[in-house]
Design a protein around this nucleic acid. Structure first.
Lengths: 205, 205
DNA sequence: GTCTATAAGTAGATAGAC
DNA sequence: GTCTATCTACTTATAGAC
């Protein structure tokens, strides 16, 4: 009876660090969200892909919103780390590093930016999740505005912000339409405008 | 017994032209789709808003996909009519007419472009609906490419197409992010870049 | 922590009366 | 054409054993 419970606990504690089912859930949830959208995947989809029963998913994330919050927070932290890793580079190389994940996503053929997808689902989300989405774009656009000012010293803070907002809109829109038209190179072609807008030109490959 | 059936038919035939519940359904479905997304509204939502029972909605549109197809086709026809009505104007005024619905949508505060929303739901749609979405963007972008060539005769067809694709991505992305940030003027600010990209400048108001 | 079992509600869709 | 009534499947979520 209770001896099994004890064994289970020992097992769980011993392997919790390595098996990390929480990360497995988030990994598959990320793909499902970025492919279909927040309202077009279910716990069943998640359970089938991870091999984890839906009740266990609820143990790690009590509600579906909790899954969404964890995903966008991780996405934002990934961005923050990327931006930090780019800081030693010259500005044009920083920008190339910034767009790289967008280009990679376009080439998956069926995914979109996680934050862009949640932005499209905005009105069906609870306030907590909406706030996380706004924070992601605030981070990205403030950073882009700083890069624009570094490249174009004549630019005032307001103009740099407009520039950054247009650049971000261009990336999100290009990714969305590249997916709908099954044309990943559409994203590549949009980059010329992105770099021109920021005040430089794409690195020649 | 059958007398009631006959009366009902007479009533239906008499008022079918004026009451037009099919149009009512589409009108509310359009708002729901553009606000929440295709997977975030149901027949129940539609029934509550129109006052039409869900079984009657199924009479007009056997499946939910049929509602979506009717919506995007109407949306595309509205665009086609708009483009036709703009043809007598000088190109810069045509472009102003083209962006007007986007600006208006941004100022609703909670809607997005119908085609943009379906593009975001792309992977959860059936092929018929996907094809309709692609046709919408083909129409818009080919027209934009023609306008770009009219304003910039030096531009080749390929460059004009790239230009048109970037312009469309900018509009869709700006609308998406204006909504998420509750900042309709973000759309207005993006228009400077839109017009510059097309080879002109926005009309001064 | 993970499972089986199940709840309570909603999804899109249909049958048949009138 | 529109309704009431109903269906089957699926949704998110919980209870309780181990």
């Amino acid at each position: 009876m209770t001896i099994y419970l004890v064994i289970d606990i020992i097992f769980a504690v011993t392997f919790s660090a390595t098996s990390n089912r929480r990360a497995d859930i988030l990994e598959h949830a990320s793909i499902l969200l970025r492919t279909r959208g927040f309202n077009a995947f279910s716990h069943r989809d998640l359970a089938e892909r991870t091999g984890i029963k839906s009740s266990s998913i609820h143990y790690h994330f009590p509600t579906k919103q909790d899954v969404g919050v964890a995903l966008i927070r991780q996405y934002r932290e990934d961005l923050a780390q990327l931006l930090q890793s780019l800081s030693p580079l010259p500005v044009p190389e920083r920008l190339a590093g910034f767009v790289a994940p967008f280009v990679a996503t376009a080439h998956t053929g069926d995914q979109w930016c996680l934050a862009g997808m949640l932005a499209s689902d905005y009105n069906s989300l609870d306030e907590l999740l909406r706030d996380e989405v706004r924070q992601f774009f605030d981070l990205a656009e403030h950073w882009l505005a700083d890069q624009a000012m570094a490249l174009q010293p004549a630019l005032g803070p307001d103009d740099a912000q407009v520039c950054a907002q247009s650049a971000m809109a261009l990336l999100e829109g290009s990714l969305l339409l590249a997916r709908a038209q099954q044309d990943a190179r559409r994203m590549d072609r949009a980059l010329n405008l992105f770099f021109a807008l920021m005040g430089t030109s794409p690195a020649k490959t």
